[in-house]
Amino acid sequence: MPKPYDQAEDRALRLPSHGTTVTAEDLRVRLVLCSDFDGEMLIDGSQVESVGQAVLQLLVAARQEAITHDQPFAITNPSSAFVERAKACMLSAALGLDIQGESVQ
């Protein structure tokens, strides 16, 4: 069983199944480390069952930072729970999620 933030072979940072304020600090550190690599910043959201405001805020900030430094950023395979929470918080566009079949860059 993979650990919550394991980096897969494709270097995607895997979000935990339950992203809470408690897990946000570890995520912040891993996002900073991930941003130090050249290339696309991939965040795997496939295992997310619940995601809190602190984690969403970190992801929005990470995406903005990536955009500022011309580094591609993508949340790959977001779970339906992740997508629904992002939509409820009106953060789909800020997270770059493809909600209506159109990619948001």
Rank of each mutant, 00 (worst) to 15 (best):
M90D: 15
A74Q: 07
L95K: 01
L97W: 10
N77V: 07
F73V: 00
D70P: 01
G96L: 10
L91D: 01
S79N: 06
I67H: 06
N77I: 06
I67M: 08
P72F: 03
A94K: 13
A86M: 08
P78Y: 08
S79D: 04
E84F: 11
L91G: 05
A86Q: 08
G96M: 04
L91S: 07
V83Q: 12
I75S: 09
A81Y: 13
L91P: 06
A74P: 01
P72A: 05
T76P: 00
S79I: 10
S80V: 14
S80H: 10
F82R: 02
E84S: 14
A88Y: 13
S80F: 05
A74E: 08
V83D: 02
N77Y: 08
V83C: 11
L91Y: 11
N77S: 15
A94G: 05
S92M: 03
F73K: 00
L95G: 11
L95I: 06
S92Q: 13
A88D: 09
L91C: 04
M90N: 15
L95A: 03
T76V: 15
A74C: 02
K87Q: 14
P78V: 04
E84G: 05
A93F: 08
S92F: 06
T76S: 09
E84I: 09
S79Q: 01
I75E: 01
M90A: 15
P72C: 05
T76N: 02
A74R: 10
M90F: 07
N77Q: 14
A94F: 08
A93N: 12
C89T: 14
N77K: 14
S80R: 10
V83H: 01
H69F: 10
I75W: 07
Q71R: 15
H69K: 09
S92W: 08
I75T: 04
H69C: 05
F73W: 00
V83I: 15
H69E: 03
L95W: 08
G96H: 13
I75N: 05
F73D: 00
V83M: 14
A94Q: 11
L91H: 05
A86P: 10
M90H: 15
V83G: 03
S92K: 05
D70K: 12
A88P: 01
F73R: 00
P72R: 02
T68G: 13
E84L: 11
S92A: 15
I67W: 01
F73L: 00
K87T: 14
F82T: 01
C89F: 11
H69P: 02
N77P: 03
D70Q: 11
P72V: 04
V83W: 03
F82M: 05
C89M: 12
R85N: 02
S80W: 02
T68F: 09
Q71C: 03
F73Q: 00
A81K: 11
H69S: 01
S92L: 09
S79K: 08
A88Q: 12
A74K: 10
I67R: 10
